[in-house]
């Protein structure tokens, strides 16, 4: 699969959004809203809060489309990081991260192949591919990454939660992300 077309298409859509193109905004929403909402929902476990986060993400897209830098990642990755960060911020403000971290830690192994609702905005094969990439990570990397991505804990808190030295946690996160990117190489390049 050569998704560079899709990538260029997304990048082009973001540029068009910067020029106040409603159609481009709609296409991006239809294409990625499920993924972004799902990330927020996983972090917040609250549909109303997740809805607010998704709303914020697309309003931010509207405001910041002009400053989007393709060198730092594809639009979907940029938007998903944005959704994740906003959800984490909200989660922190709701002071829920502690109990959620515990939940994530308990849930992490074994890896769950989640497909509650097949999304219409993402290719099924692509989702499966992404799932497989996470599933193939060594347990300790997957656990550190899942905790870092979904819980919003600090480095030290992750280290405490996993009872691992800080350096080990950082290395696992870095190696895990690199491995994920390598796994996705065929899909993304």
């Amino acid at each position: 699969m050569k998704p560079t077309d899709a990538e260029h298409d997304d990048t082009d859509l973001v540029r068009r959004v910067a020029l106040r193109d409603a159609e481009a905004f709609t296409i991006l929403y239809d294409r990625h809203s499920t993924l972004l909402y799902s990330v927020a929902l996983k972090i917040l476990a609250d549909p109303e809060e997740a809805r607010d986060v998704l709303q914020q993400v697309f309003l931010t897209l509207h405001e910041k489309a002009a400053v989007y830098n393709p060198a730092l990642g594809r639009p979907v990755a940029w938007l998903s990081v944005m959704a994740r960060n906003k959800a984490i911020d909200r989660c922190r403000s709701l002071k829920r991260q502690r109990e959620y971290a515990e939940r994530i830690r308990q849930e992490t192994p074994p890896f769950e192949h989640s497909s509650e609702n097949p999304t219409e905005t993402h290719n099924r094969d692509e989702l499966d591919y992404l799932h497989a990439a996470v599933a193939q990570l060594p347990d300790e990397q997957r656990q550190a990454l899942t905790l870092a991505y979904f819980s919003g804990l600090t480095q030290q808190e992750i280290s405490d939660t996993l009872s691992q030295p800080l350096g080990t946690v950082k290395a696992r996160i870095r190696r895990g992300l690199i491995k994920l990117r390598e796994s996705l190489g065929q899909l993304l390049d």
Binding site: A22, D30, T34, S38, G73, R84, F111, S114, L130
Partner: peptide, 29 residues
């Protein structure tokens, strides 16, 4: 940073996929 950002995409996709509330689309547009 791009490499790491792309890596997080797989983590995002590992969340159970749930469609957002349908009325939000019209509201945002």
């Amino acid at each position: 940073v791009r490499t790491m950002t792309e890596g997080t995409l797989a983590l995002a996709a590992s969340a159970p996929q749930v469609a957002p509330p349908p009325d939000l689309r019209a509201q945002l547009l």
